[in-house]
Design a protein around this nucleic acid. Structure first.
Length: 137
DNA sequence: GCCAACGTTGGC
DNA sequence: GCCAACGTTGGC
């Protein structure tokens, strides 16, 4: 079991849209970055992830679960790009903002804090625990 | 809206 | 295989 962080822009794919997909989930398509794709290839069904909104929101707002391992991205014919499917598990009661993460010394090594541009990131078990607590879970 | 950081492309 | 030029992302 591993932990991840999925980054989205609310204008492109919001948490409400993800929630609306329910148990079936939805493919996390559109990723065109090798590092992010490689992370998705490492995912297993049952892995958990944070749903993070960049730009306006800049906060972790939900928990998701991987429900299908990497497969070709249906939004392109380019076979280089793959994606997993994720489904919403629960909303985070208190949104954990980027500023809060930056202000938390124990999250100093978090990828979100150090490499803001990577759209699919690994999260350590320790970081997972800390962010969950900050979020009121 | 700006700009820094990063990734990708393409010429050599 | 290097590196300059360019494009994109995302925080501020």
């Amino acid at each position: 079991m591993q932990y991840w962080l999925f980054k989205s822009e609310a204008a492109t794919w919001s948490w409400e849209q993800q929630l609306a997909k329910g148990e079936a989930g939805e493919e996390w398509d559109g990723v065109r970055n090798y590092q992010a794709r490689n992370n998705m290839r490492l995912m297993n069904v049952g892995d958990l992830g944070f749903f993070y909104l960049s730009q306006a929101e800049k906060a972790v707002v939900g928990i998701v679960e991987v429900c299908a391992t990497a497969h070709p991205d249906s939004t392109t014919d380019d076979e280089r790009w793959e994606c997993v499917d994720i489904r919403a598990v629960k909303s985070v009661p208190n949104h954990v903002t980027l500023a809060m993460c930056k202000g938390e010394p124990t999250l100093g090594d978090m990828v979100l804090v150090n490499n803001s541009r990577l759209s699919v990131q690994p999260v350590s078990p320790e970081e997972w625990e800390i962010v969950c607590k900050m979020g009121g879970l």
